[in-house]
Computed example of a mutant assay.
Amino acid sequence: MSTTSALEFSNLPTDIIGKIIEKCDLKEQLTLRKVSKDLRSLVDEQKSAYKSIEIDLTDSHIFCVYNDKNVKYDGDKLDKYNMPIETSIICNDDYVKIALNDLSIALKNPKLRLDDLYLTVDHSPDMMNRFRLLLNSLNPQIHVKTFILRAGSSEYLLSILPYLKPKVLVNIDIDGLYYRDDWALEKVRQVASLEQWKQAEQLTTRHCFDYFPSEFLIHFKRFVILEWDATEQFLMNLTDLFSTSTNFESCTVEALGLEDCSDYLESFCEKVDTGDEIDYNEGVLIIKKR
Score class of each variant (00 low, 15 high):
Met1Val: 11
Ser2Asp: 09
Ser2Lys: 13
Ala6Asn: 07
Leu7Asp: 00
Asn11Gly: 09
Leu12Trp: 04
Ile16Ala: 11
Ile17Tyr: 01
Gly18Thr: 10
Lys19Ala: 10
Ile20Cys: 13
Lys23Met: 14
Cys24Trp: 01
Gln29Cys: 15
Thr31Ile: 14
Leu32Ser: 03
Lys34Gln: 15
Lys37Tyr: 10
Lys37Glu: 12
Lys37Trp: 08
Asp38Ser: 15
Leu39Lys: 03
Val43Phe: 11
Gln46Arg: 14
Lys47Leu: 12
Lys51Tyr: 05
Ile53Cys: 05
Glu54Cys: 09
Glu54Asn: 07
His61Phe: 14
Ile62Thr: 12
Ile62Val: 15
Phe63Leu: 11
Cys64Phe: 01
Val65His: 00
Tyr66Phe: 15
Asn67Val: 01
Tyr73Pro: 05
Leu78His: 00
Asn82Trp: 07
Met83Pro: 00
Pro84Thr: 00
Ile85Gly: 00
Thr87Pro: 03
Thr87Tyr: 04
Ile90Gln: 06
Ile90Asp: 06
Cys91Lys: 06
Asn92Val: 00
Asn92Glu: 11
Asp94Ile: 07
Tyr95Asp: 03
Tyr95Ala: 03
Ala99Met: 09
Asn101Lys: 13
Asp102Cys: 07
Leu103Tyr: 09
Leu103Trp: 09
Lys111Ser: 13
Arg113Asp: 09
Leu117Asp: 02
Tyr118Ala: 06
His123Glu: 15
Asn136Leu: 12
Leu138Ser: 07
Pro140Leu: 08
Lys145Thr: 14
Ile148Cys: 11
Ser153Asp: 11
Ser153Tyr: 13
Ser154Asn: 08
Lys165Arg: 12
Pro166Ser: 09
Val170Ser: 08
Asn171His: 13
Ile174Phe: 04
Gly176Met: 07
Leu177Cys: 09
Asp182Pro: 00
Asp182Asn: 12
Trp183Ile: 10
Leu185Asp: 07
Glu186Val: 00
Glu186Arg: 08
Val188Asn: 02
Val188Arg: 04
Val191Thr: 08
Ser193Glu: 15
Ser193His: 07
Trp197Ser: 03
Ala200Cys: 08
Ala200Glu: 06
Gln202Arg: 15
Gln202Trp: 06
Leu203Met: 05
Leu203Ala: 02
Arg206Glu: 07
Cys208Arg: 06
Cys208Trp: 04
Phe209Ile: 14
Phe212Glu: 03
Phe212Ile: 08
Leu217Pro: 04
Leu217Ser: 06
Phe220Gly: 03
Lys221Trp: 04
Arg222Asp: 11
Phe223Gly: 02
Phe223Cys: 04
Asp229Gln: 07
Gln233Glu: 14
Asn237Met: 05
Thr239Tyr: 11
Phe242Cys: 03
Phe242His: 01
Ser243His: 00
Phe248Val: 08
Glu249Gly: 00
Cys251Gln: 02
Leu256Ile: 02
Gly257Gln: 04
Leu258Ser: 05
Leu258Gln: 04
Glu259Ser: 13
Cys261Glu: 14
Ser262Asn: 10
Glu266Asn: 15
Glu266Ser: 14
Phe268Gly: 02
Glu270Ala: 10
Lys271Thr: 10
Val272Met: 13
Asp273Ala: 15
Tyr280Cys: 05
Asn281Val: 03
Ile286Arg: 13
Ile287Ala: 02
Ile287Phe: 11
Lys288Arg: 15
